[in-house]
Amino acid sequence: MTVNRRAFLKLAAGASGTLVASRASANAVASNSGVEPFGVLVDTTFCIGCRKCELGCNQNNRDLPRRDSPQFEDKRVFDTHRRPDATSYTVINRLPTVDTKGEPVFAKAQCMHCVHPACASACIVGALQKTPEGPVTYDAWKCIGCRYCMVACPFQIPAYEYANALTPQVRKCTFCYEQIVTQGSRPGCVANCPNEALTFGKRSELIELAHAKIATHRERYIDHVYGETEIGGTSFMYLSAVDFKALDLPEQGDTPTPALTEKIQHGVFKGFVPPVALYGLLGLVYLSRRKEEVENTAADKDEHHE
């Protein structure tokens, strides 16, 4: 019996060992379809906090509750810190810092449309998808409403319609997918930015642009493009004159957020070998036990007969 217990424990340890030791590519999310993905470069040094991007977003995303244009001219909203929610996909905050000239610093927050999105990796039914063109899209029809995407997002972006009893949706920036992919125009926020603090283009070209801007105006920017490498890259990238942490952009490593879980996941299910092996092993132990038992019972019966 002791032997058996030990064997059981060994097995269990082995099984859990496989979970962590196995390797798998975490980059399975990346699309290799040959389409050059889009991106947006947010140059916060040009942002004046006019909230026109919020207006453009509201006008472009027809399923959001409509707000009048004057509502977006109210600057009192800057007195509180805001985050995108189920009714607004992007918001500007006036951050508690000033730039080198003592001017207030503003920054827009929205879905970053990560290159390796944790939300899409987390989604149990693939309602969130990384498209080859860059946007991370959401299909409410598939969604079961588990909100694991909200847990997974390192930027705390997806919002939920908690008040909706029957058909609640996960809400986040759409990158105006229809518009940029089928109509070839710019997302609502970019098109509406008066100071062109937002630049829409191919992600690779935007990275070049960002570095060229930094090289030209060393005094203007911190020498870093946020989102170029963070968590494997994001589609929305930021330039700043102040520390990025002050812009509500959390410090992140370069490893894609879902790398570890996908590694574990694909390790455990690599060709279904580990579970099948465990099944086979336990099955064999079970069968040998069973045989012994049948023999014993037979022996018992014989004894009784005598």
Binding site: A120, A122, I124, V125, C143, G145, Y160, P168, V268
Partner: peptide, 24 residues
């Protein structure tokens, strides 16, 4: 679950999402 009536969705092969821990 926000959309509890969709709880069976993970069973549909078209919605299988092998990267998701939750799916497993």
């Amino acid at each position: 679950l926000g959309r509890y009536y969709n709880v069976w969705h993970p069973m549909l092969p078209m919605m299988w999402q092998g990267n998701s821990v939750l799916f497993e």
